[in-house]
Amino acid sequence: MLKKSTNKSAKKEANKGAIVDAAAKKRRALKAEAQHFTFMGIPVADPAVKPRGTTVKKIREAVAAVRKSA
């Protein structure tokens, strides 16, 4: 009986560690992604209204193409 309970708490501790690691990994990924949304380290705010006559996706693709060709 004691062995079972020890295994259970050990398993719980191991899972807790895994959950903390996964959360830390996700935070690091989000932080890395956010670096791409800054201008010289300053976060860039999205405009208040949608673009007119086109889409955000098309604008992103066009800007990416210009940046690549530069």
Binding site: Q35, H36, F37, T38, F39, M40, V44, A45, D46, P47, P51, V56, I59, R60, A62, V63, V66, R67
Partner: peptide
């Protein structure tokens, strides 16, 4: 402004 903000991101 959308072209501008996308240009600024990662500039």
């Amino acid at each position: 402004v959308w072209c501008l903000t996308e240009f600024l991101k990662g500039a």
